[in-house]
Computed example of a mutant assay.
Amino acid sequence: MGLVLVALGLAGAAVGSARVARHQVRNAADLGALAGAQRAIEGEGAACAQAARYAAANGARMTRCTVSGLEIVIRVEVAVNPLPGVSGVAEAAARAGPVSADAVTVAGGP
């Protein structure tokens, strides 16, 4: 009986750890994409560097970044270690930028 309770406790801890990692990676992707979008007008290098800094500040590692016009799409990952000897990776992608090219207006424009 005691062994079953310990096993259930470990399973619960593993599920909890995976859920926390999933939330962490989603937040890092969203915040990284938003930060990168602020620099998208400066080019892919500046936008991706900014996105990577914000992703890292949120405990994730950026694995991919593409900039197309004023839109940025990034993919990040977070290592998950739910139990000793067990490891995995949680991944998420996020996009940020204007809703459409028509949404971008120049200062003083219509």
Rank of each mutant, 00 (worst) to 15 (best):
I41A: 13
R61T: 12
A11Q: 03
A11H: 05
A28W: 01
G88Y: 10
Q38A: 02
E71Q: 15
V6W: 00
A37N: 01
A29V: 04
R64H: 15
L34T: 02
D30M: 04
V20A: 07
A90T: 03
A56G: 04
V4I: 11
A101K: 13
A14F: 03
L31M: 09
V86G: 05
H23G: 10
V104R: 11
A56K: 10
V86C: 04
A14N: 08
Q38E: 05
T66E: 15
Q50N: 05
A33L: 02
A96K: 05
A56P: 03
H23S: 09
S17C: 13
A21K: 03
G88P: 10
E77V: 07
S100R: 09
A57I: 04
A92G: 09
S17I: 03
A11I: 10
A28I: 01
Y54M: 13
A47M: 10
E91R: 15
I41R: 11
V78K: 02
V6A: 03
A21N: 01
P110T: 14
S68I: 14
N27S: 10
R75E: 15
R39F: 06
A107P: 10
R39V: 00
V6P: 00
D30L: 13
S100F: 10
V89Y: 03
G16D: 08
N27R: 08
Q50S: 07
R39K: 07
P82C: 08
G32D: 00
N58L: 02
E44S: 15
V4S: 03
T63I: 14
A21P: 00
L34I: 02
E71R: 15
R53A: 13
T66K: 12
R64E: 14
V73W: 07
P82G: 11
A46M: 08
A28L: 02
R26H: 09
A37M: 01
A52N: 14
A14H: 09
L8K: 01
M1Y: 11
A37S: 07
A37P: 01
L5M: 07
G108T: 10
C65G: 11
A93C: 07
A60T: 02
R64W: 12
A14K: 07
L34A: 07
E91S: 10
A96Y: 04
L3C: 04
G2M: 06
I74A: 00
A103T: 11
A60L: 02
A103K: 08
A21W: 02
V86K: 04
R61E: 12
E44A: 15
A103N: 06
A57N: 11
R39T: 00
Q50E: 15
A107S: 12
A47T: 09
L10S: 09
G43V: 05
A47L: 08
V25H: 00
H23A: 14
V80Y: 11
A47N: 08
L8T: 05
R61M: 08
N27M: 09
V15F: 10
N27P: 00
G2S: 07
A96C: 02
S17V: 07
V67P: 05
A60N: 02
A92F: 08
V15H: 03
V78H: 00
E42Q: 11
L10A: 12
A13W: 15
A18R: 14
A60V: 00
V6E: 01
G12D: 01
H23M: 10
G32R: 04
S87N: 13
A92P: 07
R75T: 14
A79P: 09
P98A: 06
N58S: 05
Q24V: 01
T105P: 01
G36F: 03
R75G: 09
